[in-house]
């Protein structure tokens, strides 16, 4: 097994966005058992771009949340390309508060190009929904593990991204802006996105080096969802990488469960507190 840590940033961006890469629901139905979906924010609507529910990781009851993309045109439209609206973030927080109420850990799976930038989202307070989640997640008293499985698109990703542990799949990315957006602003040319991707240091190895994340889940081969027609490898990458992800989640969860609550909360604060590169 060899991790190609020198892979070009833009290649990782493309891999992270690949339509056959596993999405949140693929993970919920594979490495978890007895997933039951919980819908709606009780305020306005149910947002299919952000899925939440109860599930079992091994024999432990957990809450899972994650952005959900679509694979075909209809699904993409339904899931709004994985771009949640305020009601999505509010639903996620509602379900996470249930986790706190029933003392169950939270596992959050990030995969979004960003929060939806549209008129309706603005009218209903997209910024407030994200901001409120950040503050409330910081204070949730149960263990939270965050995994970036595909695209970690800025504030829309971070809105379900505050946790005790932040992990990244090897070929996922996490950035303040998309490479295209960055290139359009800095060079007035979206075609410079490869260069922007390089500059932004958005890959998992980079972010681990900066201590902005805690751990990388290796992808020894291309991580794709199982398809009947796919070549007949003895073991599919989907299962083997998934199994590894499951074990890493269980190990981290065990560690967090053992920890005293106050200590865990203090650690969570300090973890984000020390992030930054300033002088003085």
């Amino acid at each position: 097994m060899e991790n190609d840590f020198n892979k070009q940033a833009i290649e990782r961006v493309q891999t992270a966005r690949h339509p056959s890469r596993p999405y949140a629901l693929d993970i919920f139905s594979s490495i978890f058992e007895n997933f039951v979906e919980i819908h709606g924010d009780r305020r306005y609507a149910d947002d299919p771009a952000l899925v939440c529910g109860f599930a079992m990781l091994g024999d432990e009851e957990v809450v899972v949340v994650g952005q959900q993309k679509g694979r075909d045109t209809n699904q993409r439209r339904l899931r709004n390309f994985g771009m949640p609206k305020p009601e999505g973030y509010r639903k996620a927080l509602r379900v996470m508060k249930l986790a706190e109420k029933f003392k169950r850990p939270i596992l959050s799976f990030i995969d979004t190009p960003g929060a939806y930038p549209g008129i309706d989202a603005e009218e209903r307070g997209q910024a407030e929904a994200i901001a409120f989640n950040l503050r409330e997640m910081a204070g949730l008293k149960v263990p939270i593990i965050v995994v970036v499985i595909g695209e970690g698109g800025s504030g829309g990703a971070l809105a379900i991204g505050i946790g005790d542990k932040v992990l990244m799949m090897e070929n996922s990315v996490y950035s303040v802006i998309s490479p295209e957006g960055c290139a359009a602003i800095l060079w007035k040319d979206a075609g410079q996105s490869a260069r922007a991707a390089e500059c932004l240091r958005l890959t998992a190895p980079d972010l681990l080096r900066y201590e902005l994340i805690d751990e990388i889940i290796p992808e020894h081969s291309v991580w794709v969802v199982d398809r009947k027609e796919a070549d007949s490898d003895s073991e599919s990458s989907f299962d083997s990488i998934g199994e590894n992800l499951k074990q890493i989640l269980q190990r981290n969860l065990e560690e967090l469960n053992k920890m005293d609550e106050n200590q865990r909360m203090k650690n969570r604060y300090n973890k984000f507190r020390k992030m930054g590169a300033w002088i003085g």
Binding site: A131, L134, R135, A138, S154, G155, L158, G161, I162, Y174, S175, V176, I177, C182, I185, L186, C199, L200, R201, L202, L207, Y210, L212, R268, Y269, F272, R273, M275, G276, A277
Partner: peptide, 19 residues
């Protein structure tokens, strides 16, 4: 957020909100 500091900038949102 300031693009030139990449994910460091993004994490300031988390840091301030936690405080």
């Amino acid at each position: 957020a300031r693009m030139q500091e990449g994910t460091f900038s993004l994490m300031q949102m988390a840091k301030i909100s936690s405080a």
